[in-house]
Simulated assay, not measured.
Amino acid sequence: MKKIKEVLVVEGKDDTKQINRAVNADTIETRGSAIDDDTLTLIQKLADQRGVIIFTDPDFSGEKIRKIVAEAVPNAKHAFLPKAAGRPEKAGGSLGVEHASPDAIRAALDHVYTETTAAPTLITHDDLLAAGLIGGAGAKARREQLGEILQIGYVNGKQLEKRLRMFGIQPADFAAALQQVREKEQSHDK
């Protein structure tokens, strides 16, 4: 079983159980989006000692937790679970790491990003407009697909350019992912 050096920041004990089925890793649980100061202090200490990977659910609460922890720990790494992987049919309306398969968890942890605030803008607002990722019909669905392919999670139109820059997504990788999105759209149109 693969050993993860960093401590994984997750939302709850069910996430920890599922992660331990997939990899050998230590976790720290935020117990929801109302993260207390003691938990944030502990996460900061762990980040200094071992490093942390933020691995939250692909939903609003998960993104809120990610933002809070990333603000407190700017050098945190990020792993993203695609929405489809976090919502198996047996889970009903529930969505999260606790429902993901061990394979989906390992895949997410194989594609970890580190934010780089000093990264240059490689993909511009105009590129996103031209690609139909913002400001038009179907843009949200395209952003969801793009986020899954690049494994950067889902973001709204205003945040997409920032997320692409923060994780240093290269134009060639962006173009390849966009091509997959377009091919998927064309296959659905037939």
Rank of each mutant, 00 (worst) to 15 (best):
Q186S: 12
Y154G: 01
I19S: 02
A175Y: 00
A172M: 09
Y154K: 00
A137F: 10
E11S: 10
I123S: 02
T41A: 11
I35H: 06
R66T: 15
G12L: 07
Q179L: 05
Q44P: 00
I105E: 12
T30E: 08
G136D: 05
E148K: 01
Q145W: 12
I169E: 01
R143I: 01
D126C: 00
A175G: 03
V112S: 04
G168A: 05
A72W: 02
K162W: 02
L81N: 10
I43W: 01
Q18W: 04
V23W: 12
S61V: 15
K5G: 04
K67P: 01
L46K: 13
Y113A: 11
V73C: 09
G86M: 04
V73S: 08
A47H: 10
A176P: 02
E71D: 14
E144G: 08
A76P: 00
Q49L: 07
D126T: 09
F60K: 14
T116C: 04
F80W: 08
I134Q: 01
A100K: 10
Q180A: 13
I4K: 01
L95V: 15
S187K: 15
I152T: 12
V23A: 06
R143S: 01
G138F: 02
S61K: 14
D36P: 10
T41E: 15
L129H: 09
D14Y: 09
K64I: 13
A108I: 13
L8V: 03
D189E: 13
G153I: 05
L133Q: 05
I65Y: 12
L122N: 08
G96Q: 09
G135K: 11
L146Q: 10
K2A: 00
G62S: 15
F174W: 04
H99Y: 13
K184L: 14
K90N: 12
A85T: 11
V52H: 06
S33L: 07
T114Y: 02
G92D: 14
A104W: 09
T27V: 11
R143H: 03
V9W: 10
K158N: 09
I134P: 01
L95S: 01
D189V: 14
A175W: 08
Q179I: 05
E6W: 03
K17Q: 13
V112N: 06
R182S: 10
I169C: 01
T124F: 07
K162A: 04
Q159F: 03
H111W: 10
A118V: 10
I68P: 06
G153A: 05
V69S: 11
P82V: 11
L128D: 05
E185K: 09
I4Q: 01
G51D: 09
D26N: 07
L133P: 03
I65L: 06
E161I: 01
V181I: 10
